[in-house]
Nucleic acid binder design. Sequence first.
DNA 1: TTATGTATATAATCTGTCTCTATGCAACTT
DNA 2: AAGTTGCATAGAGACAGATTATATACATAA
Lengths: 299, 299
Amino acid sequence: MMDIHQLRVFCSVFKNRSFSRASEELFLSQPTISDHIKSLEETLGSRLFDRLGRSIAPTRESILLYPRAVELIEKLEAIKSDIKLSRNDPNGELHIGASTIPGTYFIPAATREFKELYPDVSFRLTVKDSKSIINMVAEHELPLGIAGAKLERKSLSFTPLMNDELVLAARQDILNKPVITPEELTGLPFLIREEGSGTRKTAEQFFMEKGVQPSKLKVVASLGSNSAIKEAVKSGLGVSVLSRACLSGELEKGILKEVKIKGLRMTRNFYVVTHKRRSLPRVLELFIEHLRALKSRWL
Amino acid sequence: MMDIHQLRVFCSVFKNRSFSRASEELFLSQPTISDHIKSLEETLGSRLFDRLGRSIAPTRESILLYPRAVELIEKLEAIKSDIKLSRNDPNGELHIGASTIPGTYFIPAATREFKELYPDVSFRLTVKDSKSIINMVAEHELPLGIAGAKLERKSLSFTPLMNDELVLAARQDILNKPVITPEELTGLPFLIREEGSGTRKTAEQFFMEKGVQPSKLKVVASLGSNSAIKEAVKSGLGVSVLSRACLSGELEKGILKEVKIKGLRMTRNFYVVTHKRRSLPRVLELFIEHLRALKSRWL
DNA sequence: TTATGTATATAATCTGTCTCTATGCAACTT
DNA sequence: AAGTTGCATAGAGACAGATTATATACATAA
């Protein structure tokens, strides 16, 4: 067999025009050099050096071999460093899945900023409900998911990324109080999400804990998306419970007010979902780090 | 250390998407495959395949590595076959040395014909006296020499290539006999080569053996080259002893006649001179074969 | 759930190759 | 003729590569 090591030895002998000088260069004994050259000569079926007693002379075959051997060795080194560098030089397409809230209000901004740091990455963002996202990670359709639930599966790992808080939002002219009691909820004109929404389900659960039956709410409309609800609240149609992230702009500008409910804090976790047995590419590790860094700004 | 064998194993695993199928393809055991992949992963510092239990998935690094590994392996094979082919595909420059007679009358024609057989070879012909040619071979300035003497040196090998015969040539109107006795030589108008010529020296030695002192010859002129002598003989200035090869054209056309000397045949050997410890490139072996084949036509 | 089959990892062992030291041999130098 | 330099050969030890046997993990079927 002809291997790289033998080629390295050959190149050193060729350059030095000497077996013994090659042995010094490579920190090997001279017989070792002799041996490798001999076996190379056997596998190639050609003498590579004429032993002239005191000196050696490269043969025609040797002269043919040398530049190619050098090229091969250099190429091998190049491959090694390329692979090592690729860990620190993120590039390629990142396919990320996220459930509605993070996929709408957190991840897009995060990808934009990350792309500024690492211009060679591109993103593909799949927004589905938490259950779908988790299933896709489990089926290796996604390397990374951000989900608002913790569907336990032994092959998956869930690590909390951030808290999402649901807040009661209203226009000041509709509800001009900083705090209300849970009981007062039933007197308000309520805008709610469609049946099946995670946000709605979460909110209803919290209300029930405080003894407020969802059916007692004065529902003025049921709408299909968070932004539809938000616009409706902004137009003064009623109040609603929405993710704080979804409301940040309006709260800051004072267009909408947050109304606290006495004794009730509605939070849920979003998790980074990955496969336990699957290694994350370095880029994805960096992206998760980036998300955690951004978290402090969001909360 | 990262070696070719490991890359071969990696490629097979990558193609087959399986350690065990790779082990069948390469006629190795499955643990051996695991081992090689593990050590490759260690030297590269990156996981190459995610082990998902039943199946494996190539990582980003793996996808980077694969095409390069394939390229490297193919390149190695290419080198091997190139070197092996080069033995049967003669090319490059052949530096050949020859003493005056063969260098003038034999080798040029031989190189021409050889070049027709192997168009990719080119020749460099050095013509010097035998002693110089032999020295150049000894000093590795020439891989191959054709010389008219056998200067014994233990590092050199002399193998007879052909006989050169010296013949007495004359114009028919000057000497109209097919045979003369050695004694009759002294009566002829003689043209001789300069002092130091191998041809002259050889002829004088043969004459002395037959009891004819060179000083007794009736020398009409001493000229510096074989062709000068030949032209002089053709112009009727006298007779001379010349290599048969040098005279072949004139003898065939009947311009000059060969005159035999009773009991005297003047032959000397030309030798192929090579270094004992030095391998001849395949092209040179072929060229020597070619010379031997041509010999039959010359004699 | 338990059993079974598939696929990889680990352990123990053996073999072969790489490497070394010691020594021989040939060629050049003094 | 003796010494020096440089490659080849022989023998021994260490290490890597390969194998078998076994363990572990996952998926599927009963």
